[in-house]
Design a protein around this nucleic acid. Structure first.
Lengths: 328, 328
DNA sequence: ACCGACATTGCAACCGCTTGCAAAGGGGCT
DNA sequence: AGCCCCTTTGCAAGCGGTTGCAATGTCGGT
C-alpha cells in the first residue's frame, strides 16, 4: 500500500539500515548518504511508519489524554491547548472520554494496548487513585487539575483549591456580605471538597455561612441548586464551585425576580472564555489554564526522559477577576 | 516491559499462533484451547499490543479526527459525541488540531505516519479540497459538516446550509421584519457562502436585505461586526451565521441601548447547548449534531469495510427552535 | 609505507503479532 | 479396518523499522 523503507533503500542503492539512520537524527550517517536517501525517499513519497518504529524503539509518541468533562466550556480551552501543545512537540494525543464513572482499569487497558508513552489525566473531580492506576501500570502520568495529596504518588499540576475557597470567602467578606454561601459542584469531586474547606476556614467567624452542592458541574445543576437555596431564603452572596454553575445560579436568581449583584452576589471559579463576554460579565477566580497546561506538557515530557523521576506537585496561583456579579 | 504473546504461549504450553487466535474472534480455535490461553493470559496480565497487531493486519483502529475550531462551544458536543461514538465501537480517535490555515498536506502526513484506518474531517469552514487530500492519499475519509459539491469526491455529511439560509430569511419575513440582514462568519468559509446564498434567494423581493461578514466564528467578531452595522443604521433583524456570533451581536445591540427582540431581532444557527440556557434564550436554527455524528461514524465504518464505496452525500434537516430573540 | 583511531556502512536479529500452509487428530461412513 | 473430510494446531515467514556488532574505508601521523 504505502512506500516502505526497503523500497527507498533499493532505489537509493543502500541498506535499509542506512535509510533508517538517515531519518533518525543523531545517528551515524554521512551527509552525503543522508542527502541521497532523502532524495530517494522524496521521489517515492516515503513516510516512516510511526507504529513500526514505535514497536522497536518502545516509544510511540502517543500520549493518552483522559478527561471526564466534555460539557464544561472550560474544556474547550483545555483541549485546544493540550492538543496544540502536544502536537507542537511532536507528540500525538490519544483521547479517552470517560463516560460516567468509568473505572480506571478500563482506561489503563485501553491506553496500554496502544502503548502510549505517557498519560495526562485532566480532571478536577477524579480521585488521586485514578491517576495512580496508570503509574502502577508503569505509565508515566501527570494529573492536571488534580488534588495535591499527602502520599505524592503521581505528579500533580493545578491550583490550590483550598486557597481558592479562602480567596472567595475573603473577597465576599471584604465586600461587606454577611450571609455568604458555598454552592459547590458534586460533593464527591475533590475540587469541591477542597474549595469548601478553604471557604469555611476563611469565613469562620467573619460571616454567617452555609453550603450545599449541585449534582454536577453544569448549568442546570447550578440553576436547580440555587432555586432550592432561594426557596429557603437566600444568602447575600454565593461562591459557586465553577463558572458554569455560577451561570445557572445567576439564571435562577434572576428568574426569582432578584438582581445580581444588587440582591445576590455571585462569584465563580475558572474564568472560562465566556465569563468575560459582556452579556455574562461574571466575577470569578481565574485559574491559569494556559500555564497549567504548559507545565503539564513539560512535565510529561520530563517523565518520558526519566520515568523514575520523583513525583512533584506544582501549584499555580489563582487570582480574582473583577467583573459585574459582585458588588464592589 | 510488558507481557508478550510469547510468554503467554510458554505458560500455556502452546504455540504463539494459538494464543493469537485465542484473541481473535472468528479464528479457528477450540473452546478448550481458548479457555486455556485466556487463563494463562489473565495470570500474566497479558494485553495484546494494538500497534504490533496493526502492523501485521494493516488496521490500527485509529481514526484521525481533524478539526479547526476549538473555540466554538458547539465543538464540545461534537467532540463528546465523536469520542464516545468511536470508542464505543472499538475505534480510537487521533485528534489533529488545525492551527490557523494549516495546509492539508501536513495533516495527511501526520495521520499517514500513524497509519490511521480512516479520517473524519469535522469542519464547516474547510473547502472540499481539504478532505479530498486524504482520499487522494488512499485514506477513507468523511467530511462532517462539509459542503456538498458538484464533484462528489468524498463522503459529506451535514446540513443544507443553503436551505438554512432560506429558512432563516423566510422566518424573518414571516415575522414581519422588513429590513433584514445576514451577519455571516468568515467570508471564505463554505458554510457562510451557502447560508448567504439561501438567505438572499429567499428574501429577494420580500424584504430589504443587506449582508456583511464577521472575521471569525467568535463572540468578539460578532460583537465587532454588529457594532459596525449599528453605526450604519441597523436592520430590524439579523440572521447570524452561528450561535456564538449571535451572542456577540446581541451583546453589541444591548450595549447600544437597544433591546432584543423588541428593537432588533436575532436568529442564530446551531443550537448549541447554551443557546437554551434561560439567560441566553437564543432563537436559532437547530443543527442535528447527534444524528450527523452518528451518521458520520457509521459511514466511516462502512468505508473501512469497503474503501472503494462510492462517496455519498447525506444531508440532514434543520429546524427552527423558537426562543426569545425574535418576535413572534 | 605502515599503524591506529575514528567515521560509515551493511548484516542480521529482533520488536510483538498475524496468517498461509501443512501436519496432526477425530469422526462418520462404507 | 480403511478412507475421506473437517477441525485444530504448529511452523515459519513476514509486517516496517531499529540497532549491536563487525567489516570497510578514510585520514593523520611517523
Amino acid at each position: 500500500m504505502s512506500v516502505t523503507l526497503k523500497e527507498v533503500a533499493e532505489l537509493a542503492g543502500v541498506s535499509t539500515a542506512s535509510v533508517s539512520r538517515a531519518f533518525t537524527d543523531g545517528a551515524s550517517v554521512s551527509a552525503s548518504m543522508r542527502a541521497r536517501v532523502r532524495a530517494a525517499a522524496k521521489e517515492l513519497g516515503y513516510l516512516p511508519n510511526a507504529l513500526a518504529s514505535g514497536l522497536t524503539t518502545g516509544r510511540t509518541k502517543l500520549i493518552g489524554l483522559v478527561a471526564d468533562n466534555f460539557h464544561n466550556p472550560i474544556f474547550l480551552e483545555v483541549f485546544d491547548r493540550f492538543t496544540r501543545g502536544l502536537q507542537g512537540r511532536g507528540l500525538r494525543p490519544l483521547i479517552v472520554n470517560l463516560t460516567d464513572e468509568t473505572d480506571p482499569a478500563t482506561s489503563v487497558t485501553l491506553l496500554r494496548q496502544y502503548s502510549v508513552d505517557g498519560v495526562i489525566v485532566a480532571s478536577s473531580t477524579l480521585p488521586p487513585t485514578f491517576a495512580r492506576a496508570f503509574r502502577d501500570a508503569g505509565l508515566p502520568v501527570v494529573h492536571t487539575f488534580g488534588r495535591r495529596s499527602a502520599d505524592t504518588a503521581v505528579d500533580i499540576i493545578g491550583i490550590d483549591n483550598i486557597a481558592c475557597g479562602t480567596l472567595a470567602a475573603e473577597t465576599l467578606v471584604q465586600r461587606g456580605y454577611r450571609r455568604i454561601a458555598f454552592l459547590g459542584g458534586p460533593e464527591r469531586a475533590t475540587s469541591t471538597q477542597d474549595r469548601l474547606t478553604g471557604f469555611l476556614r476563611a469565613s469562620d467567624g467573619a460571616a454567617e455561612v452555609s453550603h450545599s452542592f449541585a449534582r454536577a458541574y453544569s448549568f442546570e445543576a447550578g440553576h436547580e441548586e440555587m432555586a432550592r437555596c432561594l426557596a429557603f431564603g437566600p444568602a447575600e452572596a454565593y461562591f459557586c464551585g465553577d463558572d458554569v454553575l455560577s451561570l445557572g445560579a445567576i439564571a435562577a436568581v434572576r428568574q426569582a425576580g432578584l438582581r445580581v449583584p444588587e440582591d445576590v452576589g455571585v462569584i465563580g471559579l475558572n474564568d472560562m472564555e465566556m465569563a468575560g463576554w459582556s452579556t455574562i460579565d461574571l466575577t470569578t477566580i481565574r485559574q491559569p489554564v494556559g500555564p497549567i497546561i504548559e507545565a503539564s506538557i513539560a512535565r510529561i515530557i520530563a517523565l518520558l526522559q526519566d520515568p523514575l523521576a520523583r513525583p512533584e506537585v506544582l501549584t499555580l496561583p489563582c487570582h480574582l477577576v473583577e467583573r459585574g456579579t459582585l458588588r464592589r
